[in-house]
Design a protein around this nucleic acid. Sequence first.
RNA 1: GCGGACGUGGCGGAACAGGUAGACGCAACGGACUUAAAAUCCGUUGGGGGUAACCCCGUGCGGGUUCGAGUCCCGCCGUCCGCACCA
Length: 875
Amino acid sequence: MTIDRYNARAAEIRWQQAWDTQRVFVTRNEDPRPKYYVLEMFPYPSGRIHMGHVRNYTMGDVVARYKRARGFNVLHPMGWDAFGLPAENAAVANKVHPRTWTYENIATMKAQLKSMGLSLDWSREIATCDPKYYKHQQKMFLDFLAAGLVERKQSKVNWDPVDQTVLANEQVIEGRGWRSGAPVEQRELTQWFFKITKFSEDLLTALDRLDRWPEKVRVMQRNWIGRSEGLHIRFALDPATTPDGETELEIFTTRPDTIFGVKFMALSPDHPLALSAAARNPALATFIAECKRTGTAQELIEKAEKLGFDTGIRAVHPFDPAWKLPVFVANFILMEYGTGAIYGTPAHDQRDLDFSNKYGLGNTPVVCPEGQDPQTFVITDIAYDGAGRMINSRFLDGLSIADAKEEVAKRLEREVRGNHPVAQRQVNYRLRDWGISRQRYWGCPIPVLYCASCGVVPAPEADLPVTLPDDVEFDRPGNPLDRHPTWKHVDCPRCGGKATRETDTMDTFVDSSWYFARFTDPWIESQPTDRMAVDAWLPVDQYIGGIEHAILHLLYSRFFARAMHATGHAGVDEPFSGLFTQGMVVHETYRTSSGAFAAPAEVKIEGAGDARRATLVETGEPVEIGPIEKMSKSKRNTVDPDDIIGAFGADTARWFMLSDSPPERDVIWTEEGVQGAWRFVQRLWRIVNDAAQFSENAPTARPHAFSEAALEVRKTAHRALAKVSEDIERLRFNVCVAHIYEFARSLQAVVTDSPKPVAPDLKFAVREAAEILVQLFHPMMPHLAEECWAALGHKTLLANQGWPALESDLLVEDTITLPVQVNGRKRADVTVARDARNVDIEASVLALEAIKRALDGKPPRKVIIVPQRIVNVVA
RNA sequence: GCGGACGUGGCGGAACAGGUAGACGCAACGGACUUAAAAUCCGUUGGGGGUAACCCCGUGCGGGUUCGAGUCCCGCCGUCCGCACCA
């Protein structure tokens, strides 16, 4: 009998329909089995899925299908991060409404995802642009507002001049907008903020408990939160030098130990004292204006030279009333951090030293490194920030840095001026509140009103959702909501007078900060979450997505979980107990002689190694093979998942995405790799069919005894089962793939090489092995697995089948083969009984020809036997 | 500058917890089948030496610990990523 080639296209559609009709992947909240929530970061509906999606969703699907087989009630939902700027850009470019554009994209991408055969519960699908979703987001905004977790304040914001909107600090990358890439400017605006800083300490310390997160991500978040302990000190100002009404200057320092090395004070150009001093000093006012000018582009600030201006004001040293310090305005002092003012200790801070050297303020070293002579220790160009003993510091001399910090804090805390202590210990964070106002149409409206007499008024809950108007124009830059003739004009719900709506919408990162909670009960209309459901399902057991969200999305979601907890919408603080960040899909780039990029589909490759040459298919023009880079439209090195699925089927694409590269690293998409995956699909199909034929009429009951050959088949199968199970648990999919290749190859050898007729026990063993093989690759290639399962005579869906039971007895061998080393070099193998005594092992080892030769007739000095592992003979 | 990760054949990579380095795949080469090709199957493939049994070298470089080091320690070199005037 000849076996037809496996027709992936036809089979895949058939099995997808079968899963659909039988509602296999629809999850019930009432299901009593233990829960497992696996989630991949939901996509932005940009138009079509790309290979990055294929990789991400395949990994999630492997975990979901595996856990389902292991008996868990698996929640594996999907939705759409559907608000955002590209929809508006499309509206400008193509005169299509953002909603239309978005939903058309969703339809396309949903069909593409379905063609991948993912075990998703589509009944829970949500789109964040749906008023049924953002209604609840508005409700939570109001709850957060009432709970003091939202505030409206004026602040300097990052303004993206291309997108014409505000960006959060996290969205500014190297001084440029994360989406537009335009240099970001600073502007003063009144904005809505989520008070993420209220949770700074908890967001930081809780990272230690996220032991199933990549260390890299935790480090990045730790740095981002940027906790530092220090002292808040009030310096008195010399009245003779100070503008009216000003008496003191507050600073924050993490190095109070260096207080006797201080040479100057420096203020941010935005500092109130700087401004009041500027009011009577035109030159200073000019300097400040200058700072702000260079300060419009973040990029320039970072490269700018340190500049200062002496205000003429003098501060008084807290330990010496006679010691006066010049107060400068300096361009490198940030108003947003600490108090916006510092004291400068040039010897021990590089920035202060640069500044001091420029303005001739000198420096006095106050920390002397171990082994240095304090008399000769001088600082010229490089500040010293290491450990050491205090010098030149009066009562601190001889103390360690830590003791000196403590001593200064103690003394200044005790000292009182104007009923307040002169200094207080303080913890500062780099983390800022999350500004969420965006001057955009296609986002969730912020549900507040402004009334001339009542001020800021929250929208009444009965009016939620505050929906977006449909009739908007995108013919001009700026926010269409603001220009809309009627939308923003409403009556004040408090006084009935005239009021206007907030026309800013929320940052789309708000939408994605709680979708994982909504998935647990997306049907409930009365509230954002059903507490029974959300508390039962959260946290997400395994979250999978790109490293690019290490800070933004993941930190916001952690904040949201806490805020939802505080307002009664959820019972957990951490949304994701397990996190995995997968690598990118990369591909070679191709350039024609004109410098234009060519797409892989347009290029023909010939030769191998150094002789590899590329030409354009159409013209035969030679093409330069360029570096391997992340697949992107601009470099045209993308491969369309539809093309791959069309040509080879989803299973081939899925298998290739899991092969070779470790999941956290980048994977290089190659035509050869796809071909290899496709060949293996066909090979599996043949092996399973051959095995089915081989084991025809196999006994259904397990034989009492097995021949050596049959036993070997069973051992191989169960060893593979053990390894693959373990490696799926550890998300080491590339290693799973290798084990499956190995197992398949050995099963194939048994089926081809065994003499006929076949004994019943071997039939049984081969049949068992074939079933295990199919079940092992099922999470990775579900369609092929169903087809094979049917070929093995099963009438039920493999998707509903449990994971095979491991017979661990089969993993234990009666005899073991140990490598034998002489002086750490392998010389031979020795096969002994598993429980052989060491003396017997030693005797067998020393009897080996190769060992005798290596010892050259001399007795060994020592024989080291590591049980079950290795023997080393020391000559 | 600060912080982190990594460095293994021609390539992607494997090696539990200090115990046989190079699993598995790709590419390449040789062979079988075929009129031929495709497809499939089998074999070889870190470097060097030897007819062979076998021997020597080998996990970025230099040291160290150990019976034994890809793995641990110290010092370099290189690559990638994140943060970047945060006082």
